[in-house]
Amino acid sequence: MMSLGPYASFIVTSYAAAALVVAILIGWIVLDYRSQTQRLRVLEERGITRRSGRSAMDAS
């Protein structure tokens, strides 16, 4: 077992905070992607498409 000495709480808090912030960033980006693709799908179902006629979801 790794010993972190008398300042273990500072070390553990640092790593936990980094993990939490990175997890929030990843979660925000994934949820944002789902939200944008859902909104695009709804618009295309209403018949609103790009001038090129291609799906706005192209290559997404």
């Binding site: 992607y33 693709t37 695009l40 618009l43 609103i48 790009r50 706005a56």
Partner: peptide, 17 residues
């Protein structure tokens, strides 16, 4: 960046609508 591109496509489709 991919999300932002999709957001702008939605904006332009909504303006077209």
């Amino acid at each position: 960046m991919r999300n932002e591109i999709l957001r702008r496509r939605i904006r332009s489709l909504q303006m077209m609508q």
